[in-house]
């Protein structure tokens, strides 16, 4: 047998993409960064925008100070009095830029706040709840906390869990009914009653047959990954050919 990476527990390992931090003991900080990448990129971009704005305001202030100094120190070099006009223009630009920076900061802060409250946190909550379900605990439906995309996703995941529960309970019911039928059959066989038991045997066999047919039809209602159920056994399916139009 070729050496394979350690098999993960059935429910949690299936279908999981390998993460760069798998198997490595990175610091919790790096892992936190990995998990919150989008939020961090948002914050970095916001910071960059504010820094660029601030630099512009300081540069304009610098120019204003320079122009003022020239005007004050050597009025003769400016007979047409263009320096005060320049200073006024720069002041105007600086005020406008500061206002813009204020508006930008407001926008960015609101965006980050909205992202954290409407997307980031609800997603984390959703992930925790869905993990519970994938580990076999279907008893706690997800409470969607909003009508946005995350809320819709929560609803759909609840639907998935409802279907999962239904199929399992159908199986349970069939197991129950068939078990009772098997017990009755065993009793008849124990009695060894060849003629009188026949009807009872037929009836109970009928119960088991119907249950098995029902379960078989339930299984056939699903489409599976790389496998399908042909009514008797599970068979490997070739990958569907990609249809190129």
């Amino acid at each position: 047998m070729t050496s394979q990476p350690p098999r993960e527990q059935f429910f949690s390992g299936r279908g999981r993409h390998p993460s760069p931090t798998d198997g490595k003991r990175f610091s919790p900080l790096l892992r936190a960064v990995e998990r919150n990448k989008v939020l961090l990129v948002f914050c970095l971009l916001a910071l960059a925008a504010v820094v660029v704005d601030m630099k512009f305001v300081f540069d304009v202030s610098g120019e204003m100070t320079k122009a003022d100094k020239v005007g004050v120190s050597n009025p003769a070099s400016d007979p047409l009095m263009t320096v005060p006009v320049q200073v006024e223009l720069l002041d105007y630009i600086r005020t406008r830029m500061s206002l813009m920076m204020g508006v930008t900061i407001l926008c960015l802060v609101s965006m980050i706040y909205l992202y954290v409250h409407k997307i980031h946190r609800p997603l984390k909550q959703l992930m925790r709840a869905t993990k519970e379900m994938s580990n076999g605990n279907l008893s706690d439906p997800i409470r969607p906390n909003g009508r946005n995309e995350i809320g819709e996703l929560a609803e759909v995941i609840n639907d998935l869990a409802a279907n999962y529960q239904e199929v399992l309970l159908l199986t349970g019911t069939a197991v129950g009914k068939s078990s009772s039928a098997v017990e009755r059959i065993e009793k008849v066989l124990d009695r060894g009653d060849k003629s009188a038991g026949q009807d009872e045997l037929q009836e109970q066999v009928g119960v088991i047959k119907r249950d098995l047919e029902m379960l078989g039809s339930v299984v056939k209602d699903f489409e599976f990954y790389q496998t399908h159920f042909d009514g008797r056994k599970v068979v490997h399916t070739a990958r569907k050919p990609q249809v190129k139009k």
């Binding site: 639907d159 409802a162 279907n163 529960q165 239904e166 199929v167 339930v218 209602d221």
Partner: peptide, 9 residues
């Protein structure tokens, strides 16, 4: 029915 699968059936 809350199960889409069951509703279909």
């Amino acid at each position: 029915d809350d199960s889409g699968f069951m509703r279909k059936r």
